[in-house]
């Protein structure tokens, strides 16, 4: 391999950034802050894991933010208004979001449409549906919510590893295993390399597409439940723009937007970088929170430029020998 793999560069940026922050605010380097960072970004980590699969396969999923919003409203209404037991509500919404993702994947494959358009439609659909359910914030008071919110593993140094942070870590690890160790994962990379070639080599491209978008929506549903735990409410305007945050995390994590390369671990590091920037701004106190977006934007530019550089470097010897026939 030429130079550093992108994931390593992400890791270096994270460590260096964290060191810089800790130099200015020594308190940042505590398990308390790290625990909060994981809790605050739990839903983002979950949804970005799904996005990693989609982007490596050469697609994109713009609907995830809306699916999160819909999930919070659905869960809140089901528990508070319709009197459904929380667990049943969770299972129902997960089945619903998985079906939603499967439908998008099927449309993408059967009608050979760009994922961008199909999931854009999905984004409007899910967001619209959540407004249809309720336009106002619905607080959730079910006992299971306070139990889960109170639950936390004590870390040395006084930090709390909350339930939703644990869920996120489990999903990140599970996602990494699924991507790197299974046939499904290998096929995701194959699709991102070339759909035509993958299908010639025997990969069931249609089934894979359906499964990949199903996975992404399912994880968005889980992220929605986690988000409802985080805010103890359901609100149709929640998680607006999260699809873009998660795409940013995936790209910063070294996954190629054109597909074929990337890792879940990189995405997790990307989420942490975004969380770290936010934490820094909170500590500073004088900076507007919008600086998070500016810093993320700068980082995104840097990573995309870096990837293009790496891609160009990797392609050079190949193109030289091409183009022979008279």
């Amino acid at each position: 391999m030429k130079g550093l793999p992108p994931v390593l560069i992400t890791a270096i940026v994270l460590v260096a950034g964290f060191a810089l922050c800790a130099m200015q605010f020594p308190n940042i380097a505590s398990t308390r802050v790290v625990g909060n960072l994981l809790t605050d970004n739990a839903f983002l980590g979950i949804v970005a894991t799904g996005m990693t699969f989609v982007i490596i396969s050469g697609g994109i999923d713009l609907s995830v933010g809306s699916v999160i919003g819909f999930t919070t409203v659905f869960v809140a209404l089901a528990i508070e208004r319709w009197g459904v037991p929380p667990l049943v509500a969770f299972v129902a919404i997960l089945a619903l979001s998985a079906a939603f993702g499967a439908a998008m994947g099927a449309v993408i494959h059967v009608f050979d449409l760009p994922p961008f358009i199909v999931t854009l439609a999905g984004m409007f659909l899910a967001r619209g549906a959540s407004f249809l359910l309720s336009t106002e914030s619905v607080p959730i008071t079910a006992p299971v919510y306070s139990t889960v919110s109170d639950f936390a593993l004590r870390m040395p140094g006084g930090g709390r590893l909350t339930a939703i942070a644990i869920i996120m870590l489990v999903i990140v690890i599970g996602g990494a295993l699924l991507l790197h160790l299974t046939r499904f994962g290998a096929n995701v990379y194959a699709l991102g390399g070339s759909r035509v070639t993958a299908s010639l080599m025997g990969v069931a491209v249609g089934k894979m597409t359906v499964k990949i978008y199903m996975l992404s929506s399912l994880l968005a549903g889980i992220a929605g439940i986690v988000f409802s735990f985080y805010t103890s409410a359901g609100y149709s305007l929640s998680a607006v723009g999260v699809e873009l945050d998660s795409i940013a995390a995936v790209v910063i994590g070294g996954t190629l937007l054109t597909g074929g390369q990337g890792s879940v671990i990189g995405t997790f590091l990307g989420v942490l970088i975004q969380g770290m920037i936010q934490t820094y701004i909170n500590f500073d106190g004088t900076l507007s929170s919008w600086w998070t977006k500016i810093a993320t934007g700068v980082l995104l530019f840097a990573f995309i430029a870096l990837q293009q550089g790496l891609v160009a470097l990797a392609r050079r010897p190949v193109t030289k020998s091409a183009g022979a026939a008279s």
């Binding site: 390399g193 070639t197 010639l200 390369q261």
Partner: peptide
């Protein structure tokens, strides 16, 4: 001629 395999795998 253009190898039909996946260079990224």
């Amino acid at each position: 001629q253009e190898v039909n395999l996946l260079p990224n795998l």
